[in-house]
Simulated scan of single mutants.
Amino acid sequence: MSVTSPAERDELNHLLVRTGQQDEKAFSTLYRKTSGQLFGVCLRMISDRGQAEEILQEAYVTVWRRAASFDAARASALTWLVTVVRNKAIDRLRQHREMTGGDALDFDAIVDESPTPAAGAEASQEYQRLQECMGELEPRQRTSVREAFFTGATYNELAARAKVPLGTMKSWIRRSLLQLRACLNA
């Protein structure tokens, strides 16, 4: 489901609130309406289909357990769900990096540009707006934000890669996030 209207957004918000009240039917409907899009997010971050399926399952277990903490005044249901999935994927990427002793992941290697189930998500107005706003960031800051949020890189790792002081990297990320918020709320 690509959320394009306020009615669809309100429906997902309502389903997530009811899930927080342990309503199994609402949870089932929420899963049916969002799992394809969230699976696309998983595949974008981790190209291994089996691992993406595991992450999605773990994410929905977390959704069931933590849905009561959802606050529609702070974010839409879809944003909240994508955050849960993204965090699970980042945890998996970090775990893999620690187990293999590998270096930081290359964002471009993670993001496969071929059509995937995420194509529907990318077509959504929210995604397009985010891409426009990301395009307004300076290239180095845009890369740093992407790596921080899609690979789970720490400030220290980002600063080392960009060959800038840690304080500079923190400032870049903070200013970039403030700029994104202003752009998305415009």
Results as ranks from 00 to 15, higher is better:
G167E: 10
Q141A: 15
A148T: 01
R94A: 03
L105F: 06
F150V: 00
F70H: 05
A159D: 03
A160K: 13
M169E: 13
V164H: 08
E157G: 06
A119P: 00
V111I: 08
G167N: 12
R140D: 14
M134I: 10
R97F: 04
F150L: 05
H96A: 14
G135T: 08
S144E: 09
G135D: 11
D91W: 01
L130N: 05
R140W: 09
N87W: 07
A77F: 06
P165M: 03
Q128H: 10
S76L: 02
N87V: 02
P115I: 13
R140Y: 06
R94W: 02
N87H: 12
N87A: 07
T83H: 07
S124Q: 01
T154D: 06
R92M: 06
T143P: 05
K163V: 01
M134A: 11
N156E: 15
E98T: 02
S144A: 15
G167K: 11
V82R: 14
N156F: 12
D106M: 11
R74Q: 14
R97H: 03
E113I: 11
I110R: 13
V164G: 06
G120T: 11
L81R: 08
R97S: 03
L81M: 07
K170E: 14
Q125P: 06
F149V: 05
P139C: 06
T83L: 12
E122P: 00
A159M: 01
E136I: 05
A72S: 12
T83E: 10
S124L: 02
R92D: 03
L93C: 06
G135R: 10
G167Q: 09
A118W: 10
C133V: 08
P117K: 00
Y155M: 09
G120L: 14
A77L: 08
K163L: 01
K88W: 00
W80A: 10
F149G: 09
T168H: 10
Q128Y: 06
D108W: 11
V85A: 05
R74C: 08
Q131S: 12
F150M: 05
D106W: 01
R129C: 11
T168N: 08
Q131W: 10
W172E: 00
T154V: 08
P117I: 05
R94V: 06
I110Q: 12
T168V: 12
E126Q: 05
R140V: 15
T83K: 12
R74Y: 02
